[in-house]
């Protein structure tokens, strides 16, 4: 079976600064991978390379056997979805926030069936009341915003979820809810950067970046 992701990068950069060499990794469907390393070591540059947000590398990244650069970027990014450290939700209500990316998919005639049911399940899993749907997104707390950002990403049924330090500004309880929800409810592949101790012991695999090299550790859990 073809690997979901195949990363073969000889040199990874942040703009022009060389960060990591010789990255050779295969990722299977449903794997949970944690990226660890010091600030500036190249974690985010690697994560961003996976959804075409960073082109500063030599080598090739394949998604389902095809180079990611050969996919139309919007198609690839609707299958490999990223959630950022500080979520941006916009000015509308939570419903508007959730509707916006679905509008992109609707224009490409992707199947949006069962959507409301899915949203309901996600709200329940993330321990958010559905009454939040009519609230202004700006008025939510940091933890609520991050949960809405995750629901927005998960409703798209991505094959890979990229998480860039999403729990770094959250309290322990919220971080716990989020990690439970992702680990228990999301069947796809997760690749995450996190320093949160709550998250550390749940991963099957970790990639440690230090001194310009990446070490692949399996069976962390």
């Amino acid at each position: 079976m073809t690997d979901l992701l195949s990363i073969n990068v000889s040199r990874l950069f942040y703009e022009k600064k060389h960060l990591v060499s010789d990255i050779k990794l295969q990722v299977k469907k449903g794997e949970r991978i944690l990226i660890v390393g010091a600030t500036g070591s190249g974690k985010s540059s690697l994560l961003n390379a996976l959804n075409l947000m960073n082109q500063s590398y030599h080598g090739e990244i394949l998604f389902e056997g095809k180079a990611i650069t050969e996919y139309p970027p919007h198609i690839l990014r609707s299958r490999i979805v990223m959630v950022m450290q500080e979520p941006w939700l916009g000015e509308g209500t939570v419903q508007d926030v959730l509707d916006e990316p679905l509008a992109y998919l609707a224009t490409r005639k992707q199947d949006l069936g069962q959507r409301e049911q899915k949203i309901r399940e996600l709200f329940k899993a993330f321990e958010l009341s559905e009454s939040y749907l009519n609230q202004k997104a700006e008025q939510l707390s940091g933890g609520e915003k991050q949960r809405v950002a995750l629901i927005r990403a998960l409703q798209l049924n991505p094959e890979i979820l990229l998480l860039d330090e999403i729990s770094s500004a959250l309290d322990q309880k919220t971080s716990g809810i989020i990690s439970d929800c992702i680990f228990n409810n999301f069947p796809g592949t997760v690749i995450a950067i996190s320093h949160d101790p709550l998250w550390q012991d749940r991963w099957q695999r970790s990639w440690t970046i230090a001194g310009g090299t990446l070490t692949d550790n399996r069976e962390v859990k």
């Binding site: 959804n51 947000m53 970027p73 919007h74 198609i75 990014r77 609707s78 299958r79 979805v81 990223m82 950022m84 979520p87 941006w88 916006e100 990316p101 992109y104 998919l105 927005r152 990403a153 798209l156």
Partner: peptide, 9 residues
């Protein structure tokens, strides 16, 4: 960036 990371053109 948020929009494109969610699949926007």
């Amino acid at each position: 960036y948020t929009r494109i990371s969610l699949g926007a053109s």
